[in-house]
Every structure is written in structure tokens, then in C-alpha cells.
């Protein structure tokens, strides 16, 4: 028997039940795949044009993407300035790629990120170097999604370390405050937190002080993310053997020095994969700012479909947006899995 045949026998027709399953699945695929190919490729409408063109073609309307992709990616940012958000996004993606490399985990990477955020702000806001100023209310699309996700994680991280240390502290009041915060936030839906941020923050501030809408959403995301990150960090702290704490104590290092020099360097190494996973969640969750009226990637895609003439082709539009989210999240989750294995093997 040839190799492919014996493979099929083992993996597709191993038992009567398995054979039945294979046949049923093949039948289902036969029902689904040809029409799908027909829709997506053969009958699809490609290239520039108007909705009429899509109706004539009958299949998928990729014309929608040709016509509207810039609105989807950059929202209502001034059309002739789109190179700025494009450059800002490219900068973030490049830096994400660099950060994935373990050899680059040096102090300068933090500085690079700080610089990148500043360049991002300069590009998006303008008002410097002869760039026309653009209000945050006009920011939208992928750059908004990226900046909220990145900043939420970055700002939440130090806060989450304090929360995690607080939760493991021997001082009861500090432990109570940390546990209270973490459990309160984790028990509440993100939508509520974002509503609170968008509706209640203006009430929280002294009269006359206003807070930018994007900043409100960012603060909401940060407060929310911090509670989940704190649990990840706590997991890392718990994995450190008690002997490490005792050895540090016996050397007379004191609480903060032993945390900074001995415990956190080991614990944080362990929690890098969970932090990457939290970043993925945060990236996906950023789509919820749609609900409080920001034009992130999802809202911008939705807005691009608002035109009644294009609305019938919502599947194509959302598929494209989904693909962008998928690419980011899928690669990051693969990376996190690889990293987890790599760190475990390389653990000296």
C-alpha cells in the first residue's frame, strides 16, 4: 500500500465512526466550498467602481475595499494627510516586531517605545514641524486601535505590579485595597468601565476641567487592564520559591531592594507570555471603544458601510476588518506560545 493511502486509512478511516465522520464532513465541504469559491473569487467584483458594479457581478464585492479601505483604516482623519497615520502605524508595527526579538530586550527598548509614542503623537496631532494640527476627535481606524492597546498595556503594567505586590503584602489594609480593586474591576464588564470613563469622568473632575474623549477611553482601558495584568503578575510572584525571599532577607536587602533585584526580575520573566496574551485581549477589547463613540478600526469599518448603497456588502467589509485583527492576534498568540516554550527550555 502506498504512503498516502496508508496515511488516509490511519487518519481518515481509522474506524467505522471515523469513516462516517470523514464522509459527512466531505459532504458538508462539498456543499459549502464550491459556492464559497464562486462567491469569493469567480463571481467577485474586483477593482475600483461603484456599488452598481458589485450588483452586476453578483459575487463578493471586493470593490468595496478598493473604494473604502482608507476610510476603514484611518477613519475620518483628513484624507490628504493619511500618510501620517500610515507612517505612525508602520512605526508601531516595526517596533512590535523588534520587541519580539529576545536579543532586543535591553533597557534601550523602553526608551525606543517612549520615543515611538512621542513620534506617534507628533505625527497624529501635528502642529509641529509644519504638520497641520488634527484634533483627536478626527483620529480613527487602526492607529487609534493600536495606540489605545499599546498605551493601555504600558501604563497598566507598573500599576499592575504595585497591585500584585499589594495583594501579596503582609499588611492587611494594603492587601484589602489591592484585592478590592482587582476583584471589583474583574467582576464588572469592560463596557461598564468604558461607560463610566466616558460619562462619569467629566463629573469626577473639578468644574471647568475637561478631559479628551480618547484619553477617557484610554484611562478606562488602562484601569481595566491593570486588574487582569495584576493577576498575571501575581501568578509569577507565586511561582518564585519562598527560599528566594528568605535568601534576600538574610542578606539584609530589605523589601523594596529584594523585590527590585531578586523577585521581580525572576517573576516578570515568567509572566511575559501571559502579558502578551493580555495584550492580545486588550487589542481585541479596544474594539469596545466603538460603543462609547470613538472611531477605532471596527467603528471606522462600520462607518464605511453606512452608505446604503454599500450596506449589502457588509460581510466583505467586516471580513477585511476581521482579517486585520486576525493577523495581529494570531501572530502574537503564536509568538506567545513559542516564547513560553523557549523561556522554559532556556531557563538556566
Amino acid at each position: 500500500m502506498s504512503r498516502p493511502l496508508s496515511w488516509a486509512k490511519a487518519n481518515l478511516f481509522g474506524s467505522p465512526a471515523s469513516s462516517l465522520l470523514t464522509v459527512l464532513t466531505l459532504a458538508l465541504l462539498w456543499q459549502v466550498v464550491p459556492p464559497l469559491v464562486d462567491w469569493a473569487l469567480i463571481g467577485a467584483s474586483w477593482g475600483a467602481g461603484d456599488p452598481e458594479r458589485c450588483r452586476a457581478a453578483g459575487g463578493a464585492c471586493w470593490t468595496l475595499l478598493t473604494e473604502r479601505h482608507r476610510l476603514m483604516l484611518f477613519g475620518v482623519y483628513p484624507y490628504d494627510q493619511h500618510w501620517r497615520p500610515a507612517l505612525a502605524v508602520a512605526l508601531f508595527i516595526a517596533l512590535l516586531a523588534i520587541s519580539a526579538n529576545r536579543r532586543c530586550w535591553k533597557p534601550w527598548l523602553g526608551g525606543a517605545w517612549a520615543l515611538a509614542v512621542m513620534i506617534f503623537a507628533a505625527l497624529m496631532w501635528g502642529g509641529v514641524l509644519g504638520l497641520a494640527p488634527v484634533e483627536t476627535s478626527q483620529w480613527g481606524g487602526l492607529p487609534l486601535t493600536l495606540v489605545i492597546a499599546v498605551l493601555a498595556i504600558a501604563v497598566a503594567f507598573p500599576f499592575s505590579i504595585l497591585l500584585a505586590l499589594g495583594r501579596r503584602s503582609g499588611l492587611p489594609a494594603i492587601r484589602a485595597v489591592s484585592v478590592g480593586y482587582i476583584e471589583l474591576v474583574r467582576g464588572v464588564p469592560l463596557v461598564s468601565v468604558l461607560f463610566m470613563a466616558s460619562v462619569m469622568f467629566p463629573l469626577f473632575l473639578p468644574e471647568g476641567m475637561t478631559i479628551d474623549k480618547v484619553l477617557r477611553a484610554l484611562v478606562g482601558m488602562t484601569l481595566f487592564t491593570a486588574a487582569y495584568l495584576a493577576e498575571a503578575v501575581r501568578g509569577g510572584l507565586q511561582a518564585i520559591p519562598r527560599g528566594q525571599f528568605e535568601a534576600a532577607d538574610a542578606l539584609g536587602l530589605g523589601y523594596w531592594r529584594s523585590m527590585r533585584l531578586i523577585i521581580l526580575p525572576q517573576a516578570l520573566r515568567l509572566v511575559i507570555p501571559p502579558i502578551v496574551n493580555q495584550f492580545i485581549t486588550c487589542f481585541k477589547d479596544t474594539s469596545l471603544v466603538t460603543i462609547v463613540g470613538l472611531y477605532d478600526l471596527l467603528a471606522a469599518s462600520k462607518a464605511a458601510l453606512n452608505d446604503p448603497a454599500w450596506r449589502p456588502y457588509f460581510v466583505e467589509g467586516y471580513l477585511a476588518a476581521a482579517l486585520v485583527y486576525f493577523c495581529f492576534c494570531f501572530f502574537m498568540s503564536r509568538y506567545s506560545q513559542w516564547l513560553e516554550r523557549d523561556l522554559r527550555q532556556g531557563n538556566r
Binding site: 527560599g243 535568601a247 531578586i262 525572576q266
Partner: peptide, 14 residues
């Protein structure tokens, strides 16, 4: 003024 040696060494692995 007091040095201590533990059963499980407790060296800092990092």
C-alpha cells in the same frame, strides 16, 4: 553580621 546557608541553596538563578 549573620550569614546564612540554606538547605536548598537559594542562589538567585537569574
Amino acid at each position: 553580621r549573620v550569614g546564612m546557608v540554606f538547605q536548598s541553596f537559594n542562589l538567585f538563578p537569574h
